[in-house]
Amino acid sequence: MCLAIPARVVSLDADDMATVALEGIRKLVSTALIDDVAVGEYVLVHVGFALHKLSEEEADRTLKLMMEAGVLAEELEEMAAAGSTGDAP
């Protein structure tokens, strides 16, 4: 549960929420902890909250590393399994 995953913001929704996309999963996350995030930017997501923004290169590198180290699949599963909201392919 300590891990945080980089994801791309695809839309800004009401009530400090945003939809992020990663690996074909779409997820509604809270943006209550960060200021002025924009569509197309990358954020680090931890327990359903965007913790901070990060550059595309950093996001890309982290994702690749997580994938190759095998932790990405676990995290995605956790994300998708537990009480998921707004998952769509």
Partner: peptide, 13 residues
């Protein structure tokens, strides 16, 4: 007992 991924799930419940 329900497993949640986020506090947002707990609020929904």
């Amino acid at each position: 007992i329900r497993m949640v991924y986020s506090t947002q799930d707990a609020l929904r419940i």
